[in-house]
């Protein structure tokens, strides 16, 4: 069907990866209950992972028929620098969230990415980041009481103190 479009860089590697992953999951699905019964907990998982493996192999066959030559390169069309940076930034966010806390981590995350991508002034980046964090904090933390990790900012105590002040004023 689409055999005249050339293979994209890395496509073959990704294809082999999904076949390997499917096979691994199929093996694991077999391990849930074996061929115990039609109604076993492993029955449907075995069918789905089996189907994944089968499709993976068919896709591989289609891929191998495609011409391998392409003008695209990995560094430009598949994993350009901004994508790598962003994936790294999200990972860093997840790692830092517990020790540093929600407010500082989010602020740094936004500031870094906005500054990097937009190349605008620091003033613009800082105010955009701070404003967005404030908005998200109000919606999630104050309105919906989603307790984000506090980290180095003792926000729980600060909120309680503010609450006390207002409480006292009443």
């Amino acid at each position: 069907m689409q055999s005249n479009t050339p293979r994209r860089p890395g496509e073959l590697g990704f294809n082999l990866f999904i076949i390997a992953a499917s096979l691994f999951l199929l093996y694991h699905a077999y391990g849930i209950a074996g061929f115990d019964a039609l109604s076993s907990a492993g029955a449907v998982p075995m069918v789905t992972t089996g189907l994944m493996t089968l499709c993976g192999v068919i896709i591989l066959r289609q891929n191998l028929r495609k011409p391998g030559k392409t003008a695209e390169t990995i560094s430009r069309d598949i994993l350009p620098l901004p994508v790598i940076v962003t994936i790294a930034a999200i990972t860093a966010y997840a790692v830092l969230l517990k020790p540093l806390g929600f407010v500082p981590t989010s602020f740094l995350f936004l500031l870094g990415l906005i500054k990097l991508f937009s190349a605008r002034s620091w003033g613009f980046s800082i105010s955009a980041a701070a404003g967005s964090v404030a908005l998200i904090y109000i919606i999630f933390r104050l309105v919906f009481s989603v307790l984000m990790p506090a980290g180095i900012v003792p926000e729980g105590e600060i909120l309680a103190a503010i609450g006390h002040l207002f409480g006292a004023a009443k």
């Binding site: 962003t86 999200i90 997840a94 989010s106 990415l113 991508f117 998200i136 999630f140 989603v146």
Partner: peptide, 22 residues
């Protein structure tokens, strides 16, 4: 350049908020 970082942050917070889980 501003929208994408913001979407990402919102995605992270949203995913976290579902079950308060990293």
């Amino acid at each position: 350049t501003v929208l994408i970082p913001l979407i990402l942050l919102l995605s992270i917070v949203g995913a976290y908020a579902v079950n308060n889980s990293l």
